[in-house]
Write a protein that binds this DNA or RNA. Sequence first.
DNA 1: CTGAAAGCGCTTACAG
DNA 2: CTGAAAGCGCTTACAG
Lengths: 341, 341
Amino acid sequence: MTAVKSSRRATGRITLSDVARAAAVSPITVSRALRGERAVDPALVARVQEAAQRLGYVPDPAARALASQRSTHVAVLIPMLSNALFVDLLEAVQRELRPAGYQTLIGITHYDRQEEEQLLREQLLHRPAGLIVTGFDHSEGTRLLIQRSGVPCVHVMEIGQGPGVHCVGFSQAEAAAAMTRHLLQGGRRRIAFGAAQLDPRTLQRLQGWRQQMQQAGLYDAKLEWLNPAPSSIALGAQMFEQMTAQRPAVDAVFFCNDDLAQGALLAATRLKVAVPRRVAVAGFNDLTGSDQMQPALTTVRTPRRAIGEQAARMLLALMRGQTVAPTSVDLGFELCLRDSA
Amino acid sequence: MTAVKSSRRATGRITLSDVARAAAVSPITVSRALRGERAVDPALVARVQEAAQRLGYVPDPAARALASQRSTHVAVLIPMLSNALFVDLLEAVQRELRPAGYQTLIGITHYDRQEEEQLLREQLLHRPAGLIVTGFDHSEGTRLLIQRSGVPCVHVMEIGQGPGVHCVGFSQAEAAAAMTRHLLQGGRRRIAFGAAQLDPRTLQRLQGWRQQMQQAGLYDAKLEWLNPAPSSIALGAQMFEQMTAQRPAVDAVFFCNDDLAQGALLAATRLKVAVPRRVAVAGFNDLTGSDQMQPALTTVRTPRRAIGEQAARMLLALMRGQTVAPTSVDLGFELCLRDSA
DNA sequence: CTGAAAGCGCTTACAG
DNA sequence: CTGAAAGCGCTTACAG
């Protein structure tokens, strides 16, 4: 015989007050017991949890967000989903965040700083509990928005921005340098660098290659093959064709991303250019399919799943108000030596 | 000289009341004017809009959701982001929804009906304004949740479920049948069907192939090469190797997805199996890279971007309370004949 | 066409 | 350790 409250705007939803009534405590106590906040009598906590369970109570995210000025959303800003790298990253982030009760709000920036700022502005209206952004190359507006919002933020894919900035990634420049050293050690002298998109991380890889080539006394600006168009298999094929036609002396090409390298290998087959005999080909990221290429692609394996996982965990700690140390986590990389270089 | 309201819990946010004060009307009038709801005196609308603009007012999504029992979120349930198909779909959806003021909440089901139901249950707590789900193969619980929630819903990728169900897609079976007919017309007799994942749409394609083969009097269960593992380039290579070893008489293989077919072409190169001379290879979806393969892959081009766009527009109309006709939109497909078959 | 009142379902800030 | 009151910023339902 329960008296049914019937308001003009009743939603039928089980509320905190319903649980409070069932457990014979005040709504505030229910709120605290369920969130594990402050000290609540363990006996009451048990009673409240039992009642909540029995009634099938689930907190209303909108009400909670309005009252606490903080939602259960985590905004994730990534450049592009068509780069499989970010799909892996995102899946790892979601796998950590969802069980903790957070929803992921994805913003695709298309490698555009203005679009990123606009997206962030929109996301911030939802008062996200946390933020995950790609790299450090942001507009001044973006930087200010992040800072002033006070929302915990973790940067992914890159490392090293001094204290106060939380990040999980690896050194893009060092990874590229390591692959360049491998090519040099293999006896290659005229090692070209093929890059597309020309986003910040690509340029850091370019720097790593440059530095090694200069150190070896082999740097030549003509070996840089840069194209601002989006990275793709087709573009890699096209770049490889042009390169072999215009730079016949090149004995290795290091591509900034595997899709370009895969395209190059397909073009090499078509053009009957012997890989690695005449030209070695190396890629970056170890994307799906690279191990199946003819010859199998030598590349740099990057830990994007681990980055997503660690970044999410770091953010979870920050959102709980904990202090995180170290603030910069370097997850390294691995040379993946196969047959093409 | 404005009097600054200073509450114990002030958030610093510009609110509806601030705009109301500035425009010298009541908050309700501001609410109505800004949403374009009901009839408001055009002069007042202008005054309100001017004030809102000047103060930089943006509505609070949480407050709005709490009061109206409806958020500005649209939940999108898709099987997997590692299938480029769904990335294309998703990008198209976002491109339509974002300018209309809706945020996309992505749920990845991993082709699992129970996970889909769980995700939907979580999403529904956020009172989404709309729902986009993949296909029609849902658990009974999912079906009930959608129905009882009353949230407008559009199904994508498939068509034809009778009235009352909104969908945008194409006939998977017919598309597969068309490719099978092409292979038959090319003189192929022992056409194998290679499939992975075995999700509902893959099985519909299998049906389309079966029906054509039976009609041609060429059906043989041994030609079905089915693997429940996730679709990938590596798996396609492996399946092709096994098939050519165990079914030497096969003169064509029709794969249910391009990644499998790409892997098969790479394996063929490795095994020195002449494509299409000895075995024709066909794929499905025309994914990135298929045009670059050696030989270029013959496949079925599917309109996933158009599907995303149309589905989003249909949903927008439904969310506005409009009636949509027709409720089922068939966007067709296109044979993409290249060199491999 | 416009508004005063009440309410959406939580949490904060203050007391005790 | 627990609670009564007030408030978060909107919209609904009812009047006029």
